[in-house]
Design a protein around this nucleic acid. Structure first.
Lengths: 193, 193
DNA sequence: AAAAAGTCTTAAACCAGTTTAAGAAAATGG
DNA sequence: CCATTTTCTTAAACTGGTTTAAGACTTTTT
């Protein structure tokens, strides 16, 4: 019953009955993912939501000069997807890549729509997920306008303590919008206080 | 029948029948708004979506030092609201202020939920609105990470031609995340090419 | 176990954007 | 229509963050 973590994720918002769980189990797909494997690449239409059973993933954009800019990390019991591409069915500008070996549950759009109609409560769960990510994005944009890199780094440490042992600093630097060299300087400054 | 612009807005996604229009008309509230009047202030819970009939509005955050950072503009036939605060019912960190004299239609949360249940198609319209704004926010964040101020200014001119005659440059500078002085220098540089 | 790839740090030179200040022009309010 | 507020610009000094380069260390791959 590998679906258990997902049932537990839904539980607080949406307790599921046995036949609903059976239906979920039937339609979802499990995938083992290797380090550096991509779940989505630029130019593709994002056709799935991914729920992380095990592992750590990043979603990023590669700019014309090849630099990567991280938008989102996802670890166990979190969802990751290019929501824009998924819903509009336009080609994505983003990549989703595994930073560690892991396992995900894949939910295709047709199945999500099926669940929307059969279990209307699903609508709410996914709307709340979009709203939460929306608020997070908005706060990050405001933060990049109004805070220094040091403040953004300390906010990251505060907001994502579970990620700091797990991610290399290069990935954190890319997430807060600075170079790894400058992050190194910031860490030195903080340490010598 | 002052509600006409709103009917026209819904038309392509959601053609409404007479009794539905009558119901809308009954529940919506019209408000005349003066220049510099606030529709939302920091600390308040955002209780409405606003549809602009006439005028120009900005949503911004005031940082601790008092500087303003613009997140969104809305003109005729566009919606404006702090989506995060509206849905979570947490106090907003944002202000919504009129840049010109104007008029809006106010839609309260209770009425939105009423419309969701009575006309289920409303769900989709508002979900698409959130998704569109989500994508726009994501692109802006990526742009601030990967582009220069000059590129961001030129993207703004390109993406919002209807706003450039209407907004003072100070407001545009705040939207793209730079000082008015630096925008002035950029404009000089562009002109002398 | 060796080779290869990725990570972290330091430091100097550099640059994009800010700050401060100040004056002229334009728009708004009473 | 006069007074006030807002807007726009220029310019010099400054600063937060980048770039380039290089060396030591760690992790991953074979």
């Amino acid at each position: 019953m590998k679906i258990l973590p997902l049932i537990r994720f839904f539980e607080p918002l949406l307790p599921l009955e046995k036949h609903e769980i059976a239906e979920l189990e039937q339609r979802l797909i499990f995938r083992k993912i290797k380090r550096k494997q991509f779940l989505l690449a630029e130019g593709e239409i994002c056709k799935h939501y991914y729920f992380v059973i095990q592992g750590c993933f990043k979603m990023f954009k590669a700019d014309p000069s090849g630099k990567e800019h991280n938008l989102l990390f996802a670890i166990e019991n979190q969802w990751i997807s290019d929501i824009g591409s998924f819903h509009t069915e336009n080609p994505s500008q983003l990549f989703i890549e595994a930073l560690e070996e892991g396992e995900v549950i894949q939910l295709a759009k047709a199945d999500l729509i099926h669940f929307y109609t059969v279990f209307p409560k699903f609508n709410r769960v996914f709307r709340v997920m979009i709203e939460d990510q929306f608020v997070e994005l908005q706060n990050r944009l405001l933060q990049t306008f109004s805070s220094t890199a040091e403040e953004r780094y300390e906010a990251f440490l505060n907001d994502h303590p579970e990620l700091i042992q797990r991610l290399p600093n290069t990935q954190i630097a890319s997430y807060i919008g600075i170079t790894p060299e400058f992050l190194s300087r910031i860490r030195h400054q903080i340490a010598s206080k």
